[in-house]
């Protein structure tokens, strides 16, 4: 005859297996904090050194531009790669600490659920740049990033859903206040990520 302890252990095991098999929990709060810091640094560099002040919706790609668009795009891509690299590295460290593999079925599901909004958003933003609609780049990147997070939250911490919604709301607001694009970019990708990271570190610290 089993004892009460055994039943409680059984239930704990069932719960852990359900969670481990359906949710990706290796994402560290530090990844958010670092991504936020990179984004703030990037916004600072773009503003101070590259003179990036997108105050209007439309810029002609052929005519003289007040800033070097190629450099700004290069900067943005560098930040994206650095943030992703840090997230993958920290998740890898965390997963091996917990004796789990990083590239498990939930990680695949998580990425797959982010892929559609991110690729659609990326192509759209590229088209906007080619058409000279630079002012829409920030709102669209916030919007599609938010949609990707919202979609992916099914496979990871519930807080990611709130993070996604926050980015979507910021994206919508910045679509109206196009002239404050860089500020919204720093807010959405910088400040929001740092707050999220600190909250996650505090909540799930062990």
């Amino acid at each position: 005859m089993k004892k009460e302890q055994d039943y409680i252990r059984d239930i704990a095991e069932i719960r852990s297996m359900m969670e481990r098999s359906s949710k990706f929990l290796s994402l560290s709060g530090w990844a958010g904090i670092m991504a936020g810091i990179y984004a703030l640094l990037g916004a600072y560099i773009a503003f101070t050194f590259l003179n990036f002040r997108p105050e209007e919706l439309f810029y002609s790609t052929s005519g003289p531009s007040p800033f070097n668009l190629t450099k700004v795009i290069l900067l943005a891509v560098t930040i994206l790669i650095m943030a992703l690299g840090t997230a993958v590295f920290l998740s890898y460290k965390r997963a091996s600490k917990r004796n789990e593999k990083l590239w498990n079925p939930t990680a695949k599901q998580l990425l797959a659920s982010m892929m559609v909004p991110l690729v659609v958003g990326g192509i759209l933003i590229l088209l906007m740049i080619l058409k000279g609609l630079i002012g829409l780049v920030v709102p669209f990147s916030l919007l599609f990033y938010g949609l990707a997070l919202f979609n992916a939250s099914r496979y990871t911490y519930q807080e990611v859903k709130i993070l996604g919604l926050t980015e979507i709301i910021l994206g919508l607001i910045s679509s109206w206040f196009v002239e404050y694009g860089l500020l919204f970019w720093a807010l959405g990708f910088g400040v929001v990520h740092i707050i999220y990271g600190i909250h996650m570190n505090y909540k799930y610290k062990k």
Binding site: E13, I14, R15, M18, S21, S22, P105
Partner: peptide
């Protein structure tokens, strides 16, 4: 067996090697 059922309860389909890794 309890682990297999728990994992299958929250996933539509799981292949053999993923189950092996999980358990």
């Amino acid at each position: 067996r309890l682990g297999v059922m728990s994992a299958l309860a929250v996933n539509d389909r799981i292949d053999f090697s993923s189950l092996k890794e999980l358990l």
